[in-house]
Every structure is written in structure tokens, then in C-alpha cells.
Design a protein around this nucleic acid. Structure first.
Length: 772
RNA sequence: GCCCGAGUGGCGGAAUUGGUAUACGCGUUCGACUUAAAAUCGAAUGGAAACUUCCAUAUGGGUUCAAGUCCCAUCUCGGGCACCA
């Protein structure tokens, strides 16, 4: 303990010991359930959430801390302003990592998940987040996924969950199909292996039903432009027409085109190798060549198709008639036409389309510069989307069971709602196999289920034994409604309570650094569906989205175990810096939405700053400068947090503390500082406020302190800074007087000897520019 | 290839509406305290000059009294999409 002599009084200066302070306050907050949120009529409310984490065995990483701290700063900021804030927390637990771990070690995913959640919760608590822990949810909890299944059934009832046999992305390593959104550069998003195409009967959600609304409402969202553009591109609306090209009397090929006005130049047709009616088009002589080409195309991986953009294709031996020119034009099969887009067939207009021209040149097909005609002359108007329906079945064990059973004829039936949840059975062997079915297919007892069926003739119901669906749901289905579960997380009668939803939601702030397209599109889709069904009173679930950047390793590269450059946030805390330093550092590291590189030495700088806050001592008097500084800082920090400029808010607090060390701090300064600091460093600030015997109500600034009596007049000559003159603020109203003062200044005179051409006076910047 | 972002000291970054470029932090240097070191505190810190100037916001032009900020072109980096008819 250090002894300080000061104004004749002896102060005992305590060392800032973050770990001691933090434990004290975390315990207090836990005991008091300090952040429990309840609906209070008449009080302004706010709900904030981060994208809930997947609790991996590695625990919290610095990216989580950045993400969660942004939410926490806003949570505490608004709480301190008297807003009724709800900040829940949950875990996205179904998925491959836990299952793969189970396969490797024999430990049940249920068990792994429980361990990981316990660890995650402990770590999140050690960071002092203002979380309402009574609202904790976990997607693999039967109490939760019962309602995921209920959601599925609502979609099923309305025909928006349906089965379709088609070519799908298949990951040969993870042995499951994947959604379009889960294939990155032709590779599986989880294991990175090249995906293949496989023809399978699969479950889909009909997201395309809402394509127009999903696209049109993007512009009204307070979301980053980057994300909005990505979603627009992903949906990819094209306005055009469908036109039939006759082959012979009984059959024609329907094509989609955005340029029906170029039909005069359509000199051939092209269909995709996977084109459904391909067999009816091929002439007998071409059969062998076409089928060989198709087999070759299906074998090619997406990467191979992309790498070699040289056009390939084969003539089908058949012709169709161009309805505009009445010319007989050849039909080709080529893999540059995609089966899943439009009709899977195009009219090729080599004169106007670069890809068609390449193909025409290679196969010596005519290129006709015909004129353009009216867009509406042929075919019917048609809108097509790049976005496909969302493939939701997965041939894996560790997911939410699809609540469907099949009768003897193989027709799907909904599991009745009173039989939910369909509990995922505990089995020993989780391993998927080549059968295309999940490990659940091996749970013989579980597979059989009695379903009541209404006889269509007699109208009577009877029980019938059926076989359960063995596919599980894509994890993204579980996270497509969790924000609404937060409103009434223990509700046993409903997925969410309407009144609670009405009070808390839509979500005011959502923060995350991933899932720009998939999750953020799916949750908007479900919101619109449940709004249509009368379960939600809004059509967009998220008002504001904050998309935070990544934190990279000190070398600027992505942190990864294999590179050995991972910074563990718990190490930073336990090294003695504490959670407050970690939180404040991650807010100070740079603009929240930009990637940043970790700098261990800068962490020390933030720690020094907090130390200086803690050791500031109150004086009896202070200068006017300090009062001005206090009000300036209150304004700056308040406005910066409103703008999410957390880094400059911290910088402003640092400036304030530097100034207080120079001119002395009044008790009012320490109170203001502690309150402003609390969102960033809540433990330290709480400790300081307790010592000062103060509440934490957010301070207000008074503009009157920010209006200076004397201002520095900036004088430029030809745009270059030449002098600074102190003038009374009142004089700024008198331009003539100001110009006289400027012209008579000795320093300025030196530059204006040749004569003044022009003067410009900008009052708001107290600046004069003299042109000579 | 197409569509978005971004480029500022040795480093991370400020500059919010076109108006004083480099706030704040790190690092470095010097000083105080100490037998010494650490910690802490204080001072300096864009580059050239050398006592009042010049040059600096990726590069080259332009608009303007005034440009990091606006316009045009080029280069580099990051992200997204990628044969979507």
C-alpha cells in the first residue's frame, strides 16, 4: 500500500486489482438477478441480441467477445438511460462438430453439448455481460425443438414444406446433402471437400414464395448496405418472358429469357444436361453421344465446371421452330445452361449474348444481327429468381428430427402436434453411411409410430403404423425462430407468447459477423410466413443489424489452431488484465465493423487507462476548463455510442482522464467519468460509483458550457494556415471587425503585402481565408 | 469477368456537413523516482530543413478561395457473386 501526501490529508492509494473487483460484482449481479427483464407497461423498451453462438469445445474466442461486448455496451448504455432492456442469450447446438466429436470419441453429442454450454456460460459470466440468464435457450433441448417441429408443421400444412426429387449438392465426406447457401466455391462449408451432384428426394422450404417481398423490403431495413446488396444479389430477380419453341405437334421446349426482344437472332436452343425432358428431345441417332455427354457433365464437380469455361456441348439431332422467324433451329445440350434456373432451357442469341456467341463460334452456328422487336410479341411475361428453394433435410443424426412419418404407400403424414416433440433417440452408432439415410435409420424401435388417419370414404379415424422420417433438419431451421422464443422462453403451450412478442419485438439490435445471406434471409422468410399465419404482428424480425468485423491474429492472419496464433480471451483476463480491460480494448481496437489485428501491447495501454481512472483522486476545486471538458466528454461519448463509434468514445474518455490529471478532478468529474465508463468497463465503474455513493444514471450535458467566450480564429492565406488569433466569440457576429483584426495582425501582414484579392469568412469554423 | 468496400506517421487508427491533417493508443527517445530493474509519473515524437519555410492522406489529373473528404483515370488490398440466359 502506497501512502500519498496531499493537501495535508493522507490518502491510502489502493492498487487496481481487476480480478478482485470483477468477482465481487459478478457475484452481486448473479445474486440480484440484476438484468432480469420483465414487461413494464408505459416504459420505453429495447431488445438486443447477438447471433447466438455455437458452443464449441474451444470455448469463447476473441471474436465472440467483440460481438457480445458491442451488444453489452448498448444494453448498459440504454439501461443507464432508464430504458427497459432485454438482452437474452442462447446456444445454437445442433450440428456437425458435436456429432463428429461423438463419432471420434464415443461420447454422446448430448453430453458434449452440455459440457460445452456449461463452459461457455461460465466464460460469458466472467466477462460481466448484462444478460438475463433466465431466458437462456438451447436449440437441442427437446423443450425447444418441440417448437421447431411445430414451426415445420405449420409450413407443411400450408404446402411450404414439401418433398422434391432433384439433383442436389452432396458432400461425400459428411455424407449429407447441403443447401445452396452452404456450398462455398464448390466445396462443403463444414469440411471443405468438393461437393457432388446427387439425385435424391429431399425436403424443401418454399422460400421462393416470398422472393418478391424479401427483395422489396430490403431497402427499408436499417442494415449495412453490404449485407443488403448481398441479399439482393442472392435473390437475383430477373424480369423476362417464357417462350415456347415447337419441336413437333405434341411437344415444345419452353425457354426463359430476359431479352424476348432479341428473338429474331435466336439461331439455336440449348438445354441443360439435367434437363427433365431430355429423353424426349434426343433423336435416335444422337442418343449415345448425348447420354455420354450428360454422364460426363454430372460427374464433373462444380469446381471443374467453373475452371474450364471453354464451351462444350453436343447436338441432340432435333430441331425446333423459332416462332418469330419460323426458321428450323437446332437443339443442343450444353453444361453452360443450368438446370435449376429458369426452365433449364434457353434460346441462344449469339449476336447479343457473349456466351451464346462463344458457343456458336465453336460449333459453327449462324450469328444473325437481326433487329429488335417489341418485348411483348412472343411468350408470356415471367419473373425468375436466382434464389432456389431451401433444402432442409440432412442425412445426419445430431439435428432436430423432421416430424413426419410415411404410410405404406410412402406418403408423408404430419406427426400430430400433441405427439411433439419427436425426441431424438439416444443411439450408440452415429456414423452416417452411403445409404443416403441418417444413423436414425438404425434405431429400429424409434422408427415405428402410430398415427391417426381419417378414412376419406367413411370419415372415421383409425390408428395406423407408420415409419418415421430419418432425416434431420438443417441447423438453420432451428435458428430461424429463436429470437421469438426469447420473448417467452419457458412457454409450454406456445412457441412464443403473442403478448410478450408484441411487447419486446421486433428486435431493436442484432449483432453478428457472419451469416449475411443464409440465416439472415431464412429468419426474414419465417417471419413473413408466421405473420401471414397470424402468429407475428410484424413482417421484418430485425430492425437494426450491426455486422461486426473479425479480429485477426497479431500477424494479421486469421486465427487458427493449426497456425498456433490463437489469442484466448480467458488468458487475457487471467493474466491479470481482467475482463474490463479486455472489453474496453476490443471496443478501442478500431471501428466495430472493420477487421482488426490483435495487438497485445495495446491491451496494456487500455489497462493503464483503467488504472488511471481507478486512481484519480477528487480535489476540492478545479478549473473552468475541466467543467467544459466534462460536458464535452458527456456529449461526445453519448453521441459516439449512438453512432456505434465505440473506439472514439473510449478515446474521448482517455482524453478526459488525461485532462483531469492535469487540472484536477472534482467529485462530479469522477461521477461522470464512472457513468460514461460503465458500458465498457462495468465492474470498475460500479466499484467507483459505489465509492462515490452515486447511482449510474446516464449523465446529461449542458450546451451552455460548450459555448466558449474566447475562440481561436484560424487565418489562412491562399488556403495555408498562417496564423491563429484569439477573439471574443461575440465578435464572430461582426464580419467587418473580424477582417480588420485579421488584416492588422503582424503575422498576417507579412503574407498580404502584395494586396488582398478576396477574403472568405466561415463563421461556424471561425476561419478566415485570404486570397492574395 | 461483374458488383461493393478500403488505401492517412514506425504500427492500430482520428478528422461526423468540403474548412486548423495525424485526436486517442502502441512503439521509440529523453528525464524523474530507485542501489538497480519493473511499475508509475513527466516531456518529445510525420519527413526534410533549421528559427520560418517547404513537402506529405496509394498514383496522375480536375473542380474550388479551400480537397483525406467531391469528379475522372490508374494501381494495390479486402469482401461478395461467378456461365443465372
Amino acid at each position: 500500500m502506497e501512502v500519498n501526501l496531499f493537501y495535508g490529508i493522507i490518502f491510502f492509494m489502493e492498487r487496481y486489482e481487476p480480478l478482485k473487483i470483477e468477482q465481487k460484482w459478478q457475484k452481486k449481479w448473479e445474486e440480484e438477478e440484476a438484468f432480469k427483464a420483465t414487461e413494464v407497461a408505459g416504459q420505453p423498451k429495447m431488445m438486443l441480441a447477438e447471433m447466438f453462438p455455437y458452443p464449441s469445445g474451444a470455448g469463447l474466442h476473441v471474436g465472440h467477445v467483440r460481438n457480445f461486448t458491442i451488444v453489452d455496451v448498448l444494453t448498459r448504455f440504454y439501461r443507464q438511460q432508464g430504458v427497459n432492456v432485454m438482452r437474452p442469450f442462447g446456444y445454437d447446438t445442433f450440428g456437425l462438430p458435436a456429432e463428429n466429436y461423438a463419432i471420434k470419441t464415443g461420447t454422446a453429442p448430448q453430453e458434449v453439448t452440455k459440457t460445452n454450454i456449461d463452459n461457455f456460460r461460465k466464460q460469458a459470466k466472467s466477462l460481466g455481460y448484462a444478460i438475463d440468464w433466465s431466458r437462456e435457450i438451447n436449440t437441442s433441448d427437446p423443450e425447444y425443438y418441440k417448437w421447431t417441429q411445430w414451426c415445420f408443421l405449420q409450413l407443411f400444412k400450408k404446402g411450404l414444406a414439401y418433398q422434391k426429387e432433384s439433383y442436389q449438392w452432396w458432400c461425400p465426406v459428411d455424407q449429407t446433402v447441403l443447401a445452396n447457401e452452404q456450398v462455398e466455391n464448390g466445396c462443403c462449408w463444414r469440411c471443405g471437400h468438393e461437393v457432388e451432384k446427387k439425385k435424391m428426394k429431399q425436403w424443401f422450404f418454399k422460400i421462393t414464395e416470398y422472393a418478391d417481398e424479401l427483395l422489396d423490403e430490403i431497402d427499408n431495413l436499417e442494415w449495412p448496405e453490404k449485407i443488403k446488396t448481398m441479399q439482393k444479389n442472392w435473390i437475383g430477380r430477373s424480369v423476362g418472358a417464357e417462350i415456347d419453341f415447337k419441336i413437333h405437334n405434341s411437344r415444345s421446349i419452353r425457354v426463359f429469357t430476359t431479352r424476348p426482344d432479341t428473338i429474331l437472332g435466336a439461331t439455336f436452343l440449348v438445354v441443360a444436361p439435367e434437363y427433365t425432358d431430355l429423353e424426349y428431345i434426343i433423336s435416335d441417332g444422337a442418343k449415345e453421344a448425348v447420354l455420354a455427354y450428360k454422364a460426363e457433365a454430372l460427374k464433373k464437380s462444380e469446381i471443374e465446371r467453373q475452371e474450364n469455361k471453354e464451351k462444350t456441348g453436343v447436338f441432340t439431332g432435333s430441331y425446333a421452330v423459332n416462332p418469330a422467324t419460323k426458321e428450323k433451329i437446332p437443339i443442343y445440350v450444353a453444361d453452360y445452361v443450368l438446370a435449376g434456373y429458369g426452365t433449364g432451357a434457353i434460346m441462344a442469341v449469339p449476336a447479343y449474348d457473349e456466351r451464346d456467341r462463344e458457343f456458336a463460334e465453336k460449333f459453327n452456328l449462324p450469328i444473325i444481327e437481326a433487329g429488335l422487336i417489341d418485348r411483348d410479341l412472343y411468350g408470356a411475361p415471367k419473373v425468375t429468381y436466382r434464389m432456389r428453394d431451401w433444402l432442409i433435410s440432412r442425412q445426419r443424426y445430431w439435428g432436430c428430427p423432421i416430424p413426419i412419418a410415411y404410410d405404406k404407400e410412402g406418403n408423408p403424414h404430419a406427426i400430430p402436434e400433441d405427439q411433439l416433440p419427436v425426441v431424438l433417440p439416444e443411439i450408440k452408432d452415429y456414423k452416417p453411411d452411403k445409404s443416403g439415410r441418417s444413423a436414425l435409420a438404425k434405431a429400429k424401435d424409434w422408427l415405428k409410430v402410430q398415427i391417426s388417419v381419417k378414412d376419406s370414404k367413411t370419415g372415421k379415424t383409425h390408428m395406423e403404423e407408420m415409419t418415421r422420417e430419418t432425416d434431420t433438419l438443417d441447423g438453420y431451421a432451428c435458428s430461424s425462430w429463436y429470437l421469438w422464443r426469447y420473448a417467452s422462453p419457458r412457454d409450454t403451450k406456445n412457441a412464443w407468447d403473442k403478448e410478450a412478442i408484441n411487447y419486446w419485438e421486433p428486435l431493436d439490435y442484432y449483432c453478428g459477423g457472419d451469416h449475411a445471406v443464409a440465416h439472415l434471409l431464412y429468419i426474414r422468410f419465417w417471419c413473413k410466413f408466421f405473420a401471414d399465419e397470424g402468429y407475428l404482428p410484424f413482417r421484418e424480425p430485425i430492425k437494426r443489424l450491426l455486422y461486426n468485423g473479425y479480429i485477426n491474429a497479431p500477424d494479421g492472419k486469421k486465427m487458427s489452431k493449426s497456425k498456433g496464433n490463437v489469442i484466448d480471451p480467458l488468458d487475457v483476463i487471467n493474466d491479470g488484465y481482467g475482463a474490463d480491460t479486455l472489453r474496453t480494448y476490443e471496443m478501442f481496437i478500431g471501428p466495430y465493423d472493420m477487421d482488426a489485428a490483435w495487438d497485445t501491447r495495446s491491451v496494456g495501454g487500455v489497462y493503464r487507462f483503467l488504472n488511471r481512472c481507478y486512481n484519480l483522486e477528487p480535489k476540492k476545486d478545479s478549473s473552468d476548463d475541466a467543467i467544459v471538458m466534462r460536458h464535452k466528454t458527456i456529449k461526445k461519448v453519448t453521441e459516439d455510442i449512438h453512432r456505434y463509434n465505440f473506439n472514439t468514445a473510449v478515446a474521448a474518455l482517455m482524453e478526459y482522464v488525461n485532462e483531469l490529471y492535469k487540472v484536477g478532478a472534482l467529485k462530479e468529474d469522477l461521477v461522470a467519468l464512472s457513468k460514461l465508463l460503465k458500458p465498457f468497463a462495468p465492474h470498475l465503474a460500479s466499484e467507483m460509483l459505489e465509492k462515490l455513493n452515486s447511482d449510474d444514471e446516464w449523465p446529461k450535458w449542458d450546451e451552455k458550457y460548450l459555448v466558449a467566450d474566447v475562440v481561436e480564429l484560424v487565418v489562412q492565406v491562399n488556403g495555408k494556415l498562417r496564423a491563429k488569433i484569439e477573439v471574443n466569440a461575440d465578435d464572430l457576429e461582426d464580419e467587418e471587425k473580424i477582417l480588420e483584426m485579421v488584416k492588422s495582425d503582424d503575422k498576417v501582414k507579412k503574407y498580404t503585402e502584395k494586396g488582398i484579392k478576396k477574403t472568405i469568412f466561415i463563421k461556424k469554423n471561425h476561419l478566415v481565408n485570404i486570397v492574395v
